[in-house]
Computed example of a mutant assay.
Amino acid sequence: MRRPAFLRRLGTAGVLLAGLLLAVPVQQTAAQAAVTATTEPSPTPAANPGVIASQMQVTPSAYTGPCDETEFGLSHQVSANITVSAPMTVKYVWVNQQEMPWPGPEPVSVTFDAPGTKTVVNGFVRATSLRGYMRLRVVEPAGVPETQNAVFDTVCVKPTVSDISKQRTDENEVCGAGRLAELTLSAKLTVTDGPSTVGYRWYRRSNLTRNQWVYLGAGSTTFTSTGAQEKTISTRYSTGVSESGYFKVELSSPYQGLGQGTFIVTCSTKNDL
């Protein structure tokens, strides 16, 4: 093939120079493209899910007493707030003191049609003592911080009174004016758990009270350990005349229970029943 006339006039050196001149714009374009590619901004990270879990509570948070509110035990309520910044469905689980999802692994859903806050609630019952905590964990969307632990302490005391008895403690063979019959009244108080303090009241009903219960006095006793425990409680009563009737012990609020026993005081002899 014959070269064009202008290349024949340039010769071999001219051909090489022309090739270099034609290549320069292509190299510059590639370099410029490389610079442009490295200076583009990195993609913007995904926005925060806009979900907040807060206000975790267990009610009652502290309780000591009989756990017989229902036939299954004392009712507890767990609750927390979930706040969202946009319409969405939030899935969550409760987490107990064993660090396990409660009441099971399957999450619960709550749907928001608009931004706002909803309170989610669940409940459980206890017939025996339990000290623990609960918190709420958002499963979906991911990345939402869990609530703080809500600590609770339930002590199911279930106190009972039994073995009401009396003992004559004076030295008088017979009783009367200036020679009172002194009686020590006692009862066994039992709790299923502690620590707890149990209040009680003593009453008397006899032929001298027209068969009405008459208040004798009150007291309280403290159980400092955990687990089942018992103590003996007592009070004193004196009379100068013959009397027959009943003594009883009532447990103070919030406890329930009573114990009752009979007595006879015969002022003609110390051998009372």
Rank of each mutant, 00 (worst) to 15 (best):
S186A: 07
Q229D: 01
T226Y: 00
S234K: 10
A228K: 06
W202S: 10
E182M: 14
G199R: 14
G240L: 01
S234L: 11
S186L: 06
D193W: 04
S186Q: 10
T226L: 02
S206P: 04
T197G: 14
S225P: 00
V191C: 02
G227V: 00
T224Y: 08
L189C: 12
R236T: 15
V198I: 13
G219A: 11
T235L: 13
S238M: 06
P195K: 02
T192H: 06
Q212Y: 14
T197C: 12
E182G: 03
L189N: 10
L208G: 08
S220K: 12
E230D: 12
S206R: 01
G227T: 01
D193M: 01
S234F: 11
K231H: 02
W213H: 01
A228P: 15
S238C: 03
Q229Y: 02
T192F: 03
T190A: 03
Q229A: 01
R204K: 11
R210F: 13
L208D: 09
F223P: 04
Q212W: 13
D193I: 00
Y203V: 01
K231Y: 10
T226M: 00
S186W: 05
V214D: 10
P195A: 02
G227P: 00
Y200H: 11
S234C: 09
Q212T: 12
T197L: 06
F223S: 05
K231W: 05
L180M: 10
S238N: 08
S234R: 11
L189D: 14
L189Y: 14
T209P: 14
V191A: 00
Y215I: 07
A228L: 03
T190V: 06
T190G: 04
S238P: 01
G194I: 01
T222V: 10
A228D: 00
T209G: 10
T222G: 04
S225R: 08
T192L: 12
N207V: 10
R236S: 15
L183S: 04
T184A: 07
T221V: 14
G227R: 02
V198C: 15
E230Y: 07
A181G: 14
E230H: 09
S225F: 03
G240A: 08
Y237Q: 06
R210P: 04
T224E: 14
T221K: 12
L189T: 12
S196A: 15
S206H: 03
T209E: 05
R201P: 08
L185E: 08
A181D: 14
W202F: 13
E182D: 15
G194T: 01
W213F: 03
G227M: 02
T224A: 14
Y237N: 12
T197N: 11
A181M: 13
T192G: 13
G240F: 00
V214Q: 12
R204N: 06
T222N: 04
G217C: 09
S186G: 07
L216E: 08
K188R: 09
G194D: 04
K231P: 02
N207P: 05
S196I: 04
T239D: 02
Y203I: 01
T221W: 12
N211C: 04
